[in-house]
Structure formats: structure tokens, C-alpha cells
Amino acid sequence: MNFFIALLVSFLFGLGIYLILNRDIMKIAIGFGIMGHATNIFIVASGILQGEFVPIIITKINEYTTFIFGDDLASGIIAPIIEGTSEAGMYADPLTQALVLTAIVISFATTAVILTLIYHIDKEFETTDVNKLGRMKG
């Protein structure tokens, strides 16, 4: 896997973990957000097929076009989309992208839950300090 992406991912992980250990409850949520991003980047970047092309097979071009994310954007700015079916190695790994799609949703869902919880904890404990969340111990 690419070293710099890996460095970025692990840096974000480290940062996320540091934030999760933070005293402030909101920072914990932010930490999870950062960690979620790190995981997602990791998943995308660790795709086995490191091809040059977006994983969309185009056999017939210009059947109809869309007005923002048309072929131009897809093939021009980001990566070229080639014509005709071709060998699998030419594409970026589609499976990891599909997995990330799922992972994004799941991390959004958990973020929503934790944010609701944080809001209620703030109301109930009258603080955002995690160290005060120690009423149950032993």
C-alpha cells in the first residue's frame, strides 16, 4: 500500500485516538469522525487492483449524458474512462469502494447516535467533561 497514504491514515488514526482520550466529550465525537475518515481512506486505498481507471465499464459512450457528473468529469478530471471492456487490472478496485460506501453509512449512523447521547449527557450531567462520567464504578 502506498506509503504516504498509509502515513496519512495512521496519522489520522493517532490523532483520532488522542482525541478519543480527550476529556471533552465533543472532542471524542470529533475523534470518531476523524477515525472514521481514516478507516475509509484506508479501505479505499488498500484496494488490490491499483488500476488507472474508474471502475465503470463504458461500452457505448454518449447514449445520454448527465449535466454535472457526466462522462467529462469522470473521464477528464479524475480519471479516464476507457471504451470497451478491458482487463480487470486496469480499474481501481471496485470492491473496496463498495465496502466504503457501507462503512460511511454505518459510521454516519453511529455518529448520529453518539451525538444524541452526548447532547443528553450534557443535559443530565451538566458538563461535557468525560471524567465526570464515573458515577458507576467498582
Binding site: 473496496t96 453518539i114 450531567f125
Partner: peptide, 25 residues
């Protein structure tokens, strides 16, 4: 207590989920 327990559960569970994803990938 409910909020506190659930928060701990959620936080530890989310870290667990992240680790699980890393392991899977």
C-alpha cells in the same frame, strides 16, 4: 446511569468496530 453506561458501550464498541474494519481490510 443509562446514559453513562450506554456512552461507554458506544465508545468502546465504536473503537471495536474501527479495529474490526482494519482487520477485515
Amino acid at each position: 446511569h443509562k446514559f453513562e453506561g450506554a456512552f461507554k458501550y458506544l465508545v468502546l464498541g465504536m473503537i471495536g468496530s474501527t479495529i474490526m474494519l482494519i482487520a477485515i481490510i
